[in-house]
Amino acid sequence: MTDAAMGNVAVLLSIGRHPVSGRSRRAATDAQALEMALALRPRRLTAIHAGPAADAEALRAYLGMGLERLTLLVLPEGADPVEALITHLRHLAPSLVLTGRQAEDGESSGMLPYLIARGLDAAIVPDVVRIGPADTPDATYGKADLVQALPRGQRRALTVTGRLIATVHPSAPPARASAFGPARRGVIEPVAAQAAADLFLSDCEHRPWRPKPKLMRVKRGGSALDRLKAATESKSGKGQLLINPTAEAGALAIYDNLVEQGILP
């Protein structure tokens, strides 16, 4: 009953790009999304990539993680994959779609999961680190419990109703290694798809990225002395000072201070 909710899972996989060498590889968060999908042990797992057929060899790294087959929606170079993916996913009707957060190559705007959620009329949750079927007693069909990563290492639990698109956060469980044999044996199934060219991207101009100087928090205005002080002197605190209090008085001062700062309840 519980695994019925997670019976049909689709994973969207892109081709990554090594940040230093620029070589094609499996994209880090996409691989984690596949790991998460494999760990869910769904009845049906579909892995989909949309893009030019020429790049297909880089996808074998995903097959090496234990996938038997992978669907390749063949699109012309520079085409927008969103429409093709939505059409294909409508046909599959998965209850859960997992993807990485942002592509490592191409536009990498992070819009794709949102557009697909729109197209499938599904809920979208970003930065997921754990997914499980809801374990509340009134767990109806199609409810899922998620854990979402927040900044500063915090976590948030959520319950989602209905079809779900989730993007995976880098702090999700790490992807298993890719094995060579399964990667050779796996099957990539090409499927012809329709797609229009992305006019916005061809309207943009591209050039190699040149690192910019880091933004310094310089204080403007004031006299030279003020600016020098701001730049060189380390910040000193407001300096409430207790000299040789009793242990209890010292502890109380710390406790009250922490409560005041909102650190302790």
Partner: peptide
């Protein structure tokens, strides 16, 4: 002590147990 917003001149080994007890 100069950097701190609240500075306490005391022995750490005495403050720590007292703070644990208080919490």
């Amino acid at each position: 002590i100069k950097r701190a917003d609240l500075s306490i001149v005391a022995d750490a080994q005495e403050i720590m147990p007292a703070l644990i007890r208080l919490i």
